[in-house]
Amino acid sequence: ITIHVNGVTYHFDNPEEAEKFAQKMAKTYQLKMEIHNGEFHME
């Protein structure tokens, strides 16, 4: 699972971890999250 946050790329093997991380980042930084081709993009 690949997550892009403001141009920084994070890779996770565990989908649950990826989702937790994505939600935490979105909440902490008030980010808008989109999913493209199974990759999370946040800005």
Rank of each mutant, 00 (worst) to 15 (best):
E19D: 10
Q23T: 11
M25D: 01
K32S: 13
H11R: 08
I1S: 02
H4V: 05
Q30R: 03
H41N: 03
Q23C: 15
K27V: 10
K20V: 09
V8I: 11
A22L: 04
K20G: 05
E39R: 03
M25K: 00
Q30N: 08
H36R: 12
I3K: 01
A22Q: 04
E34A: 06
E17G: 03
E34M: 07
A18V: 09
H36N: 05
E39K: 04
I35Q: 03
G38A: 03
G38D: 03
I1Y: 08
E43K: 13
I1A: 04
E19K: 10
T2F: 13
E43N: 08
A22V: 12
M33L: 13
E19I: 13
K32W: 13
A26E: 13
Q30D: 12
A18Y: 03
F40I: 14
M33D: 02
H36K: 12
I3F: 05
H41Y: 14
T28V: 11
D13R: 07
E19S: 10
E16K: 10
H41A: 02
A26M: 12
E43I: 15
Q30K: 11
I1E: 01
Y10C: 14
K32H: 14
K20F: 09
M25H: 01
G38P: 03
K24W: 15
N37C: 15
Q30Y: 09
I3G: 04
M42V: 05
M42P: 05
I35P: 02
M25Q: 02
M42R: 02
H11Q: 09
N37K: 04
F21A: 01
Y10N: 01
V8D: 10
H11D: 04
M25F: 01
G38T: 04
F12S: 00
G7N: 11
V8N: 10
A18D: 00
K24F: 15
Y10M: 04
E34D: 03
E39P: 03
T9E: 06
N14M: 07
Q23P: 00
F12T: 00
I1G: 01
K24C: 15
M25S: 01
I35W: 05
K20M: 09
E16Q: 07
E16Y: 08
Y29M: 12
Q30E: 12
Q23V: 12
K27G: 03
P15I: 12
T28C: 15
K27P: 15
T9N: 07
H11G: 02
E39A: 07
E39H: 11
K24P: 00
H36G: 02
G7I: 15
Q23F: 08
N14P: 01
L31D: 15
D13G: 09
H11T: 07
N37T: 03
M25R: 00
E39L: 02
K32M: 13
K24A: 08
E17T: 08
F21E: 01
T2K: 12
E16D: 11
A22D: 01
V5W: 06
F12L: 01
H4Q: 04
A26C: 15
H4A: 04
H36Q: 04
H41Q: 02
Y29G: 15
F12N: 00
